[in-house]
Design a binder for these strands. Structure first.
Length: 833
RNA sequence: GCUCGGGUGGCGGAAUGGUAGACGCGAGGGACUUAAAAUCCCUUGCCCGUAAGGGCGUGCGGGUUCGAGUCCCGCCCUGAGCACCA
């Protein structure tokens, strides 16, 4: 027998030394290949993916680490549960981030990135992630982007990549084109500069062709609801009708009292198609409005109105997107022409207005001032007629329209000819049917999702593998010629020319046409960094297979990804693009699945000083100092203890000490553990309750409550300075291993095991051991708690009632026979008197 | 403006419609120490009461229910996203 009390006396200094333990195990893991996954033979494969970081010069910050740790815990948990877990990580190192930083510090990204990656790797290893680094990717490595270019070529082959001159989002500060997804409220996502419109020839991917499928599959994929909702809204499906308005020729217009004839007669009448979700309001359409960029504007503008319309169009085009979108004041110009409202058979004026967007619907609208806020404002501004065609239940048809009314529920059609009195829904159907029969309407669906512009007039990206030949036109680079390597040029600074810095390098872009051999020119734009990240998860298992983008066998075995956890800020960027590219590769027969991520969970964000931790808020914390002071295990556990993983948490230094204390105590219990005697049944009961709670909580990412449960157990283990039994401690080490892997390894070894704790399995839960003999059952009188009784959990009502009334304090509130008794076995008794 | 989250002690946060505040921080008291740190133990929602006990409490106002932090209706505040999308 020992006379000293090792348990009570083991303090921090004497016992747990994280610095030593962590460096020892990081070395050992590397030497033993503990984190190496047997991709070919591992049983029960499970692919756990985390969003790969952009390796910034500032290094890994706590926001990144929070996400990685949450993923790592899940991966380790699954491994302990018997899966062969593949948990790779790489670097998303191309893109404007890196390039701008390189420009700022006046260094070349080709030199800068490797140093940043090395620093990240040091930090990531310090965090104790279970990453198999043999399968890492770096998007800037030609061996990787060779296949990014290959992906582009597949889309090109499939007719899903096309080039067109289009009004695109141009950031005057970054000097490049941005995708719609990169424009936040009219400003550049990167630098916050107001985005301008420019007409440039750009490469696009036809993601809009996949809008319906991208939307439909959301119904069955197991993703966070919030992420799915964001994608649904972004895809923005609207059902409605396309209605044709015939432009009147001048003679017809002459019939209208307000018009002077100046136009020539056209052989074929022009037709303006309009998209609407409210065909039921068609009788209230009192004008048409075209987007300034609409192709028919020039044809229909009369001589008298020509100058005014052209001037207006020029102004609208020059205006940057921000003021066009944010400035809600309605402007416009009358074209001088009229169109026939197919419902009322009356001529209505055609206007040009910049509140009509060319890239949604048909670029033209039928103005219904009475029932649309914007049309109402426009009609007020230009004194156009406002006709009520929808009325609420008790509203007379003649009620004046003081403000636009877009209600549909309980409303009926008025001033709508034969459709008067119909409900909005019926009127909608009937009017479309009626016009369809006449050939002037058809049911359609419109999406807000636009094609993905992937051209970037920058340097730091994979060149788009296209060659422009005067004779042959656009020629794809033959696959055997990939990669088209990005040249190492000293001056990569972008300029205002609208073309990439690569366009300043003749020696690079002058090539022979792969088809005719004549003189030709390389495409000098590079592709969007989201193309790099749109398929990286396909590459990980096949790293090393240099002759294919992804090996068929390995892909079959490991994909689709089983678990993906990442930030919701990528809901409409990366996560939508990855789904799209996967669908395309599936349709081309390269993949046998069409959704890349079986399960996706959005994690929360670390808040510090009231704002999300990010570089833009200037509140980032780098983990290194915390690792040094507290240990990586403590810091990992602390981050997960801050709050629910899917909601994030408030970062502050206070609180870390509590987690460290928990690990210290756990450690001293391990140190004190003895194999003598037998375990305490009460402690074993709590242990099995803890096993259940921790298992369930980790599976549902409830890391904070899993940690709380383990803390509770450690408190029980240590009660009254007792010496814990080995059997009480050993399973706890396995439970804590996902959170504090270094310490768990050390403790496991200390207890005499010579395999990694990660290969020791997960403790089995025994419901019988966990069962409570007595529960504290609440007794209420009229819904107010008046006491509790200690009783068997399966006690019947009468037994509980008897026990309750034996308590004088309860009895004194019960006067006479209860009118009603509510009994919930094992929980509560409520007496209503 | 629209959409989706969220409002619980001094703080971070727990609570399948069933004992609100688990766990942790902080604070107060005590043990150990010459002392401090560390460690260990106790207390800790607010109010009345020596106590037993009682009253009040989950942003605000209503409602449903034996019973509401949890469900319903109407507000307020706050975070995030979208934003002239026809």
């Amino acid at each position: 027998m020992t006379t000293h009390k090792p348990h009570a006396q083991t303090g921090v200094t004497a016992g747990y030394d994280p610095a030593a333990v962590e460096s020892k195990w990081q070395t050992r893991w590397r030497e033993r290949g503990t984190h190496e996954t047997d991709l070919e033979h591992g049983r029960n494969p499970l692919y756990v993916l985390m969003m790969f970081p952009y390796p910034s010069a500032e290094g890994l910050h706590v926001g990144n680490l929070f996400a990685f740790t949450g993923n790592d815990i899940y991966g380790r948990f699954q491994r302990l549960q018997g899966h062969t877990v593949f948990e790779p990580l790489g670097y998303d190192a191309f893109g404007i981030h890196s390039e701008n930083y390189a420009l700022k510090v006046n260094e070349h990204p080709m030199r800068l990135i490797p140093a940043n990656i090395a620093n990240f790797r040091r930090q990531l290893d310090g965090a104790g992630l279970m990453v198999d680094w043999r399968y890492s990717v770096d998007t800037t490595d030609p061996a990787y982007y060779k296949w990014t270019q290959w992906v582009f070529l597949q889309l090109y082959k499939r007719g899903l990549a096309y080039r067109k001159k289009a009004a695109v989002n141009w950031c005057p500060s970054c000097k490049t084109v941005l995708a719609n997804e990169q424009v936040i409220g009219g400003h550049c996502e990167r630098c916050g500069t107001p985005v301008e419109q420019r007409m440039l020839a750009q490469w696009f991917f036809r993601i809009s062709d996949y809008a319906e499928r991208l939307l439909k599959n959301l119904d069955w994929i197991d993703w966070s609801e919030s992420t799915k909702l964001t994608q649904r809204n972004w895809i923005g499906r609207s059902e409605g009708a396309e209605i044709s308005f015939r432009v009147l020729d001048p003679f017809e217009q002459a019939g209208s009292s307000t018009v002077t004839v100046t136009q020539e007669i056209k052989a074929e009448p022009d037709v303006i198609k309009v998209f609407t979700t409210r065909p039921d309001t068609l009788f209230g359409g009192t004008y048409l409005a075209l987007a300034p960029e609409h192709p028919l504007v020039e044809r229909i503008t009369t001589d008298a109105q020509w100058d005014e319309v052209m001037a207006y169009r020029e102004r609208a085009g020059r205006q940057d997107i921000v003021s066009r979108k944010v400035n809600k004041e309605k402007t416009g110009a009358f074209t001088g022409s009229y169109a026939l409202n197919p419902a009322t058979r009356r001529p209505i004026p055609i206007w040009v207005a910049d509140y009509v967007l060319m890239d949604y619907g048909t670029g033209a609208i039928g103005g219904v001032p009475a029932h649309d806020e914007r049309d109402f404002e426009f009609a007020k501004q230009f004194d156009l007629p406002i006709v009520r065609v929808i009325a609420r239940q008790n509203e007379p048809a003649s009620a004046p329209v003081h403000e636009p009314m877009a209600d549909t529920e309980g409303c009926r059609l008025v001033h709508s000819g034969q459709f008067d009195g119909k409900s909005v829904a019926d009127g909608h159907r009937a009017i479309v049917q009626w016009l369809e029969a006449k050939g002037s309407a058809s049911k359609t669906v419109s999406y807000r999702l636009h094609d993905w512009c992937i051209s970037r007039q920058r340097y730091w990206g994979p060149p788009i593998p296209i060659i422009h030949c005067d004779k042959c036109g656009t020629v794809p680079v033959p696959e055997e010629d990939l990669p088209v390597e990005l040249p190492d040029i000293p001056n990569f600074k972008p300029d205002d020319s609208g073309v990439s810095p690569l366009a300043r390098h003749k020696e690079w872009y002058e090539v022979h046409c792969p088809q005719c051999g004549g003189n030709a020119r390389r495409e000098t734009d590079v592709s969007d960094t989201f193309l790099d990240s749109g398929w990286y998860f396909l590459r990980y298992p096949s790293v090393g297979h240099d002759d294919v983008p992804f090996d068929a066998e390995l892909t079959k075995r490991w994909l689709p990804v089983d678990s993906y956890i990442g930030g919701n800020e990528h809901a409409v960027l990366h996560l939508l693009y990855a789904r799209f590219l996967t669908m395309v590769l599936h349709d081309m027969g390269y993949l046998d699945f069409e959704e890349p991520f079986k399960k996706f969970r959005a994690h929360g964000h670390i808040i510090r000083e009231g704002a999300k931790m990010s570089k833009t808020h200037g509140n980032v914390v780098v983990p290194d100092a915390y690792f040094a002071q507290w240990g990586a295990d403590t810091f990992r556990t602390y981050l997960m203890f801050l709050g629910p993983f899917e909601e994030g948490g408030d970062f502050r230094d206070a609180g870390i000490s509590g987690v460290r204390r928990f690990l210290d105590r756990l450690w001293s219990s391990v140190s004190a553990a003895s194999a003598d005697g037998s375990p305490d049944p009460l402690v074993m009961r709590k242990l099995h309750q803890t096993i259940k709670k921790v298992t369930d909580d980790i599976a549902s990412l409830g890391y904070n409550t899993a940690i709380a449960a383990m803390m509770e157990y450690v408190n029980v283990l240590r009660k009254n300075e007792r010496t814990p039994h080995r059997a009480e401690v050993e399973p706890l080490i396995q439970l804590v291993a996902p959170f504090a892997p270094h310490m768990a390894e050390e403790a496991w070894e200390k207890l005499g095991h010579n395999v990694s704790v990660m290969d020791s399995g997960w403790p089995a839960y025994d419901a019988e051991v966990a069962r409570e003999e007595l529960v504290q059952l609440a007794v209420q009188v009229n819904g107010k708690l008046r006491g509790t009784v200690q009783i068997a959990p399966n006690a019947v009502q009468d037994a509980v009632l008897q026990a309750a009334l034996a308590d004088p304090n309860i009895a004194k509130h019960v006067t006479g026979e209860p009118r009603k008794i509510v009994f919930v076995p094992g929980r509560l008794l409520n007496l209503v008197v």
